[in-house]
């Protein structure tokens, strides 16, 4: 694509589903996901990559959708909180967040879930420090993070028991 474009045709997968869009050259991935695909789970909390409320998985890696151009999604596989559970009804992290009261206002929650999912993929049995570090790109003003840590620990523990 060496032709400069004002609107860019892109094709990619969202939550396993192929989609094709025309996006603006300067449009962010977050804008395209929220406004064009109407997946409003990812939130804009700051628009400059400081809060993590817009965290999505791009090719299984957590990134801030506000710091990514929509055009960059071309050819990638995107996962948002709406597709976190995959085919299932609820992802173990969602269940654990519910059980451990890790949700207060809930605005940061989708982003935190995506970061936590990426963290557990890389570190299936993280200690508290690794969890804190893995979630350190997601600001939460309500919870003080403790119940979120506990939820992530519970999922890790559950996975460990399953494999034993």
């Amino acid at each position: 694509m060496i032709e400069p474009l004002k609107t860019v045709p892109i094709s990619f997968k969202v939550n396993g589903r192929p989609v094709s869009l025309e996006v603006g050259a300067g449009e962010t991935a977050l804008h395209a996901i929220r406004e064009r695909l109407q997946l409003t789970g990812a939130k804009e909390g700051c628009g400059i990559g400081e809060c993590g409320a817009c965290t999505i998985l791009v090719n299984a890696k957590a990134v801030n959708a506000c710091l990514m151009l929509a055009a960059q999604m071309d050819g990638t596989s995107i996962r948002t909180v709406e597709g976190l559970a995959g085919g299932g009804s609820i992802h173990p992290l969602q269940k654990a967040f519910l059980d451990h009261h890790a949700v207060q206002c809930g605005f940061c929650t989708p982003g935190l879930l995506m970061s936590a999912a990426a963290l557990l993929k890389e570190h299936p049995c993280p200690d508290r420090r690794t969890i804190a570090d893995g979630l350190s790109g997601n600001l939460c003003r309500c919870t003080g993070y403790r119940q979120i840590f506990q939820a992530v620990e519970a999922v890790a523990q559950g996975e460990k028991e399953k494999t034993q």
Binding site: T40, P110, L113
Partner: peptide, 13 residues
């Protein structure tokens, strides 16, 4: 909380 966790909650935006 469940709606917050699945992205289904409707915030103003």
């Amino acid at each position: 909380a469940l709606d917050r966790l699945t992205g289904a909650s409707m915030f103003s935006a």
